[in-house]
């Protein structure tokens, strides 16, 4: 018997993967042509009257070719997967960083001051549930640039979890620690950086982790809407090309990149985590 849960879990994952890929592969077999087919029928997919999802073997083959040359650029509608993902990541990080620059200081203010909390709370409660894509027309009208507009949409969707978590983290810093700062005559600036920030850091980073997850969800939709570049545009473009293999491949890539972004923030959260 294998004792380690880790190894057993990995084995089970492999088995599940092989079974599901196998079923998928089998279900997408084309039926054998029983009689000679016309040239027209060949063009339409042979004897198969039904459009089928491409099998995993096709997807893997495509993944191999795409990933072995991810950064080629052969014109506006033919760019490597790496370039498309790069655009999306750039937009997410730009919008996310802008949001952090505003959300963390404002969250500090709200968390420190019950007055500011009460004054700003109605705005936050109204603005927060708005679907970020609903801002898109307004953003396009005011900014007049699709690239900047999608960064704005990322900004607006990632600001709320960071703002709320920062405010919550700052407000729930233990009073004892603030008293330690007071009895050591720290000024407001020192208290903020030496006591409140480290105490609230795990909560703030959890907010950032939620934000980057939402931002990665939204960028795909935003890029489908504005077009041009990015992984969202790529998915939609391949759908228009009826290239389902590329669609599946890019779906997988979206998942992988999303996972990596989340892992990065999870690592950062662990670095500032403390045990009481």
């Amino acid at each position: 018997m294998i004792q380690s849960t880790g190894i057993r879990a990995a084995l089970l994952s492999m088995v599940l993967l092989v079974i599901s890929l196998g079923l998928w592969e089998l279900s997408s077999f084309k039926p054998e042509a029983t009689e000679a087919v016309s040239e027209y029928e060949l063009l339409m997919g042979g004897a198969d009257q039904e459009a089928r999802v491409p099998p995993p073997s096709d997807v893997l083959r495509l993944a191999w070719t795409e990933l072995s040359n991810p950064f080629y650029d052969a014109g506006p509608n033919d760019k490597g997967i790496g370039i498309q993902l790069g655009y999306s990541i750039y937009r997410v990080l730009a919008g996310f960083s802008l949001a952090a620059l505003i959300a963390i200081p404002v969250g500090f203010l709200i968390g420190m001051s019950p007055l500011m909390y009460k004054a700003l709370n109605p705005f936050i409660q109204v603005l927060r549930p708005i679907s970020p894509l609903a801002w898109m027309p307004l953003a396009l009208f005011i900014i007049k640039d699709s690239e900047t507009s999608s960064i704005f949409v990322i900004f607006i969707c990632s600001i709320w979890p960071m703002l709320i978590n920062t405010a919550f983290g700052v407000a729930s810093v233990r009073k004892d620690w603030v008293n330690v700062a007071r009895t050591h005559e720290l000024n407001a600036f020192q208290t903020a950086f030496q006591v409140i920030l480290p105490a609230a850091a795990p909560t703030i980073l959890t907010g950032m982790r939620i934000s980057i997850g939402i931002a990665w969800l939204v960028i795909v939709a935003a890029e489908m809407l504005v077009g041009g570049t990015g992984i969202g545009y790529y998915v939609w473009n391949e759908w228009n090309n009826l290239d389902l293999t590329s669609v599946i491949f890019s779906i997988l890539m979206i998942g992988v990149v999303g996972m990596l972004l989340d892992m990065a923030l999870a690592t950062a959260t662990r670095a500032v985590q403390y045990q009481e």
């Binding site: 004892d176 008293n179 330690v180 006591v195 105490a199 403390y274 045990q275 009481e276």
Partner: peptide
């Protein structure tokens, strides 16, 4: 005036 609190009040990080 230095203070020692009952619950230690050490900064855990």
């Amino acid at each position: 005036r230095g203070v020692v609190f009952q619950n230690y009040s050490l900064l855990p990080w």
